[in-house]
């Protein structure tokens, strides 16, 4: 996998990105940047626009304002599939595996989708399945797995697309404690070994704190804070959002 061929460090960047649904500004003037090898956390309360931001970056939604670029390439109006081919790959908050295909087929289909030939797709899929500990389930249909394993299958599938930027929407949801811990460790591993940039949407502050190099906090579609995790945690607006409103 993580061949040490030093690729030129890349940047995936959304500048002033925005989209609205019937007047609701789901994402409003958000600028966010991920560099290869970096894990950026995207946090915020329910409905704050995290998934919508991922939708904009991945091309599932077209931005009505702002630009999205991968280095010199303008992605703003590029189709989702073309972005995948350039290495911008996302997972879904709800998993969305290919339910009635086996785990191996799930991962292999993605490897084929990203343009590999049959044999290389097989080899890549087998490697990723081993890497994520999915081997015992490789020949089982995805729908028969536990929620946690389904998540991991979805991540395996994203890795099979050979991402340069990996956009993960709450990957630890539905995982039990130990699964979550090892997943977090793997996410750091993806960034380091694959020199891949990771944008991690996550609710759990503790998880975010130990995983991310940089944090970006959204509330009601707007950026309320960003910076190093330790600083963001001390930001009064973040404290209010995360701890103030609860009581």
């Amino acid at each position: 996998m993580g061949t040490a061929t030093a690729r030129r460090p890349s940047v995936l960047r959304m500048a002033g990105g925005g989209v609205h649904f019937d007047g609701l500004k789901a994402v409003d003037d958000v600028s966010i940047e991920v560099r290869s090898g970096q894990v950026v956390g995207l946090i915020g309360p329910n409905g704050s626009g995290k998934t919508t931001t991922l939708n904009l970056l991945s091309g599932m939604l077209r931005a009505s304002a702002g630009t999205i670029r991968l280095d010199d390439v303008d992605l703003t109006s590029m189709s989702m599939r073309k972005r995948v081919r350039l290495g911008v790959v996302r997972t879904f908050q709800s998993g969305r595996v290919f339910a009635r295909l086996t785990v191996l087929e799930n991962v292999e289909a993605a490897a084929l989708g990203s343009g590999l030939g049959r044999r290389r797709a097989r080899a890549l899929a087998a490697g990723i399945i081993d890497e994520l500990g999915l081997r015992p389930d490789a020949d089982r249909r995805a729908e028969s797995l536990t929620a946690g394993r389904i998540r991991i299958t979805a991540i395996a599938r994203a890795l099979a697309c050979r991402p340069r930027f990996l956009l993960l929407d709450e990957p630890a949801a539905g995982q039990n404690e130990s699964e979550a811990v090892s997943l977090i460790r793997s996410i750091r591993g993806f960034a380091q070994d694959r020199d891949c940039g990771v944008l991690l949407v996550e609710h759990d502050m503790a998880v975010v704190m130990q995983t991310c190099d940089h944090l970006h906090v959204l509330d009601s579609g707007r950026t309320v804070a960003e910076g190093a995790p330790a600083d963001v945690r001390r930001d009064p607006r973040v404290i209010e959002i995360y701890f103030g409103k609860r009581h």
Binding site: R81, V84, F92, A109, A110, G113
Partner: peptide
């Protein structure tokens, strides 16, 4: 075949298939 597997993936979830680069 390669095409068959990718088509089955799209049968299971159209958008997830597109998000995996499947044409």
């Amino acid at each position: 075949s390669r095409s068959g597997l990718q088509l089955q993936a799209s049968r299971e979830d159209y958008w997830a298939a597109v998000a995996s680069g499947v044409a």
